[in-house]
């Protein structure tokens, strides 16, 4: 899996848009570090978000990383750290 060729801002935009599409919630920038499950996500919605990101970024996410995807910042961090 290689790093998507977009900026971190664009990446966050995509994550926020995916969450909005799936969970119908808009997360403001000051809450990017907060736990998504406390902001209205659940496990099915989280999987749907990851599936959307896989399609949009044209990559595959190893499920072993999913427990780390607790916040928007954590998801962005994961993709940013890809080589």
């Amino acid at each position: 899996m290689s790093k998507p060729e977009i900026t971190r801002e664009q990446l966050i935009e995509k994550i926020v848009a995916a969450i909005s599409k799936v969970a119908k919630i808009t997360i403001p920038p000051e809450k990017y570090g907060e736990n998504l499950f406390q902001l209205g996500m659940d496990s099915i919605k989280a999987i749907q978000v990851v599936n959307i990101l896989e399609d949009e970024l044209d990559l595959m996410v190893d499920d072993a990383h999913l427990p780390k995807f607790t916040s928007i910042d954590a998801i962005a961090e994961h993709f940013d750290n890809l080589k």
Binding site: I44, I47, V50, N51, D63, L66
Partner: peptide
């Protein structure tokens, strides 16, 4: 597969 619960 897409629900991401299967063994690989």
């Amino acid at each position: 597969n897409k629900i991401r619960v299967l063994s690989y």
